[in-house]
Design a protein around this nucleic acid. Sequence first.
DNA 1: GTGATCTATCGGGTTTTCCGATAGATGTTT
DNA 2: AAACATCTATCGGAAAACCCGATAGATCAC
Lengths: 302, 302
Amino acid sequence: MKFPWLKALVAVVDSGSFSQAALELEVSQSSVSEAIVALEGSLGAKLLERGRFGARPTALGIQVLLHARVSLRALEGIEQEVTLAKGVLRGKVRIAAFRSVAGKIITPIMAALQAEHPGIEIDLLERPCNLMPLTQMLHAAEADMAFLSEAQFDGVLGWKLFTDPHMALYPSKWAKTLEEVSPARLCSKTVITSSDGDSQRLLQRYFEQHGQKPPQIVTVREDLTMIQMVAQGLGVCIMPRFAVDFVPPEVKMLPLSQPLERHISIAVRQGALRLPAVKVFLNMLRQQIPHSDLPHFEVGMD
Amino acid sequence: MKFPWLKALVAVVDSGSFSQAALELEVSQSSVSEAIVALEGSLGAKLLERGRFGARPTALGIQVLLHARVSLRALEGIEQEVTLAKGVLRGKVRIAAFRSVAGKIITPIMAALQAEHPGIEIDLLERPCNLMPLTQMLHAAEADMAFLSEAQFDGVLGWKLFTDPHMALYPSKWAKTLEEVSPARLCSKTVITSSDGDSQRLLQRYFEQHGQKPPQIVTVREDLTMIQMVAQGLGVCIMPRFAVDFVPPEVKMLPLSQPLERHISIAVRQGALRLPAVKVFLNMLRQQIPHSDLPHFEVGMD
DNA sequence: GTGATCTATCGGGTTTTCCGATAGATGTTT
DNA sequence: AAACATCTATCGGAAAACCCGATAGATCAC
């Protein structure tokens, strides 16, 4: 088993083709091809399905890839550990997050990190959080950390950061005196919510729980579009407060009388908790968010 | 970074010397030396302290080792995955356990495993459970699983298997009619317990909790010796029922009126949960122990 | 001092790795 | 149908890595 073989495998799967992988790895295409052939030969099994389209992993390839990623990531951990011992910390941190978190939490941390540890590079893997549970990216070792919108860590380490209440965005003209919005009142309106995330599912449950027949729910992708729809009087938008960053005067943000909350949490791939860069990131995060459950991590030798 | 370098590093640290490592790896001593020199050179840091004694890791070396173990173990995972896909499962499983568990739980599983998956090899790392928390061996990737005597998983995955009540071993002649033993009664006797495990600490707390001044506590290493001491009338022995496998007629086993229990659990290094062999082991364990919290693990592609 | 037991280094044979060039395979466009 | 675009596979050769045996150097025990 040779290290470059695994790097090639991962690069090919990530980029979708041998030639693309070669570019990313900055080696020749023949090298990549030979590496894969050697790897498959040494294992005695086919890992990639090739074709005109490029290459994709076989069922076995997917399983192997998982271990390969772990192995390679651990090697990066070695380098991080060494550079840390020399005084500067350098290394990559891969974070899976959905948009609102990506923008509001991670950006300031990136800035702070830039100042304090310029060697740390953040790979932000932005994914809609309904597509596939972000925790799965941890299991597959595709990411080191994942922000979740629920405090459900299936089998991975995680901590709750804060609770984020959903708010109602009402057209101002409908809500001159209104101070809060009851489920019953919402039912009579068209409800607009994000198609990202699992707001839609949450809302369904919300109305069921409060004994209301769900109103018409429209899902929209862009936050700005949703708000503009509200401004036009097309309906009421329900979205997490944290995801709202601007409301025009035609729109009024109101709390729900029956709260609907999500719990923003962070989950960590256990192996990643050994990486100095990850520990530093988590410490920054903890500093950024008061009252979270996050403990402090000792970075360096223990 | 080359894998043989890491293999050499791990072997050297595990065996304590370059030459010993060479024997274990079945390569020449010069190879090992060259590998370590190359590794240190490529990292630009010293990882091993050499001397007449052999070699031991520097502070940095210990950190690096941790990642190295993870990386290599993941490689084994690749091979396991491939052989599994070919129909037979082969691979090593490293288990940290204390003696009573080692004997009574693991042995039958080994037998069953032998029959069903003869390719699986079990590395039993038997440690007294008071010396260092076995969970630490998981963090260091020295073991894949660890049996614990408490359901305290600090940061690692784990499940409770069963609760194990402590029993009193009384000289039969003192206990003709006695059916159970109260803390008060114990106080008047010399109490004998194991020096392995944390029975001693448990007992201290036990007496404090039940408002008794602790009696004289003698700790002994060998279970048989303890029982023989009881048979001789030298005192009363308190030990977990699970650790008792034979009592002579001169000794009577009695329950405690105020229960003192330990919770036998199993903890898994998260990365290890990806290894097919580990999943198979856990499934066997689950089968062996009814009513545990252990879930079933799907082995194979998912 | 002698010997035992370590690690480090050197020279050389074998294998691996990597590259550029090129062949083969397979759809797409003209 | 021919030419093209875009993949992966293979070949020959240069450079590098790997591994070994032999041997040098260091350090402690006696």
